[in-house]
Design a protein around this nucleic acid. Structure first.
Lengths: 343, 343
DNA sequence: TTGTAAGCGTTATCAA
DNA sequence: TTGATAACGCTTACAA
């Protein structure tokens, strides 16, 4: 099956190559009559552009890279994929996902980028860059937007969640329900990175302080990295054990992500701790699972966040300037059945 | 930031362009001394290949298209993305997801493909092709593998689940628990397509017959398409209402997908039907949500299926032949807490 | 409004 | 083992 080229269409339509190019790309300064003729020929021959050739000639690749630090089938990452696809695909862009799980991989990615020319833009997801990495980004000629990153440094644009306010809401709910002793349970992240973990734990401590909890009544459980455990179940047991060992034992906890909070509740039950009678639990994300078990959680919408980020790269790739380069979204606390008053 | 080209490296290393190309691609017939020299120059200049130029010259794009009929952030599709990424990325391939939701879109995709030359292969996911479409595929010069499709017609290779056996297991469990009246609840699929719905409904009816249920004791609820409803909640209410209207009312049901089964259970509870006391429910997929609510379901592993499919395209793209082009995987019934004996 | 021709950055063929 | 040189399929000045 020999490739049908622009030239074939030109021959068929009886015009020059450049006219075909112009006609098919919808440029002006083309007689509508010839355009119709060309389109007919193209349709008949089933012509479609070689993106490679177009890219090579024009310098635009019409491709965008999405960089993740976790698996593509996680709730957050797959939502980002979908959101980005929704806005980029109609604009004619292909999206190309990649993942990195170590700083080494991240650095290779970042180092290759500036000289690479294989994509027109990048969305970087849930990755916190260090100073050197941010600096590397600044040298790029293609736009890079950060999504769910800690800082906006180095990014041409970004979309972040306001974790502080969310945490105020969450801790505020526990306080309002009468809880005096509270704790934060960090999620053992996969890979080398610390994600936003440190962020949420820090936000929790700040919120607690702001709301008047004293040091003795606030605990923080840091479980390290997932790789430190033989299995996710082990991490879960560790979390439950450490929680119950706390003295005084907290009656209200925030768990960094829903995906860890839901099985933790089951694990707690196994230890004889009822939720919410003995302990109130608040998660973060509002995934399907959280909704299914009616867990109180902090809702965020990564599809929407990603659409916004994609609109930003798109504008930047088109050479436009953004009126608001850096957006901060407000997550929303959804009280459900895993939080209750002190009995 | 001017692009660093192969030529720049050649200049730096004091050799010809072609030598750089050969050296960097690891081809033989290159003196190891010069190769080292070239590599040094490349590293120093931070050179990386332009995929576009390589593709144009070589005819290989090193890109693979993934075609879905549903959103990228669904459980199944995102798992496929991840599985494919795991095997194709190390092999140097980029993966490019696209979605189609109408037959028209599907046809445009298929028609463009053969003359397109923008990808080296395609994985088609959960899409049932009609005869004309299968025929169109056969003309392609790039390999196309089907994943979770109804038939293997037109595909160079495929990975399917054995829905029949799974259904035998599911219906068998209900029967074993003493249920005399059973029903299948179809999931109102989004978009134009019917996915594997018809397949599972059909498999259910067959399994029931095989196990000795007579026509009067088996019901099948077809809810049409999601687009027919104002909201997913409406579809849910419709399902529950139709179920309860059944006379005699079934005591055991199979629901096409977990994602519909879980909220349906909640809806049933609202109607005063307890699960499993009044009605046993079996789902399909074994998603996180199913596990979280301890629902009996039929487990399948789309990440693993996708890895297998990806290995197949990869081999085909490399011109190898497959010893087993078409694989059928066996799903597994996981009994949990939504099924119980007749009380 | 249309055509000519020079790239774009590689690979591949053929000589050397 | 290396080096010219002609593709690859398109875009884009510039000329007509």
């Amino acid at each position: 099956m020999p490739r049908v080229t622009l030239h074939d269409v030109a021959l068929e339509a009886g015009v020059s190559d450049s006219t075909v190019s112009r006609a098919l790309r919808g440029l002006d300064k083309v007689d509508e009559g010839t355009r119709a003729k060309v389109k007919d020929a193209a349709r008949e021959l089933r012509f479609s552009f070689s993106r490679n050739a177009s890219s090579l000639a024009s310098g635009k690749t019409m491709r965008l890279a999405l960089l993740f630090s976790d698996a593509l089938n996680t709730w957050f990452d797959s939502s980002v994929l979908q959101g980005a696809y929704e806005v980029l695909s109609p604009a004619g862009y292909d999206i190309i996902p990649s993942t990195v799980s170590t700083d080494f991989e991240l650095n290779s990615f970042l180092n290759r980028l500036p000289y690479d020319g294989n994509v027109d833009g990048v969305i970087v997801c849930s990755i916190n860059l260090d100073t050197a990495q941010s600096k590397a980004l600044k040298k790029l000629t293609i736009p890079v937007v950060g999504l769910d990153s800690r800082t906006i440094d180095g990014f041409d644009a970004s979309v972040l969640m306001d974790d502080d306010t969310a945490m105020d809401d969450a801790v505020g709910l526990l306080q309002g329900l009468g809880h005096q002793r509270i704790a934060f349970v960090g999620w053992p992240a996969p890979g080398d990175f610390r994600f936003s973990s440190q962020l949420r734990a820090g936000a929790f401590m700040k919120a607690a302080k702001r709301l008047g909890f004293d040091d003795g009544s606030v605990a923080r459980i840091d479980l390290g990295k997932m790789n430190d455990y033989r299995s996710p179940d082990d991490a879960l047991s560790a979390a439950a054990a450490r929680l119950l060992a706390l003295d005084p034992r907290p009656t209200g906890i925030c768990v960094e992500v829903d995906g860890f909070a839901v099985p933790l509740i089951a694990e707690l039950k196994r230890f004889g701790v009822r939720v919410p009678e003995d302990m109130s639990v608040i998660g973060f994300d509002d995934t399907d699972v959280a909704a299914a078990v009616e867990m109180t959680t902090v809702h965020q919408n990564p599809v929407e966040m990603s659409r916004l980020a994609a609109r930003k790269v798109l504008a930047l790739m088109r050479g436009q300037t953004l009126d608001e380069a850096h957006s901060v979204l407000r997550p929303m606390l959804i009280p459900r059945k895993t939080t209750g008053p002190i009995l």
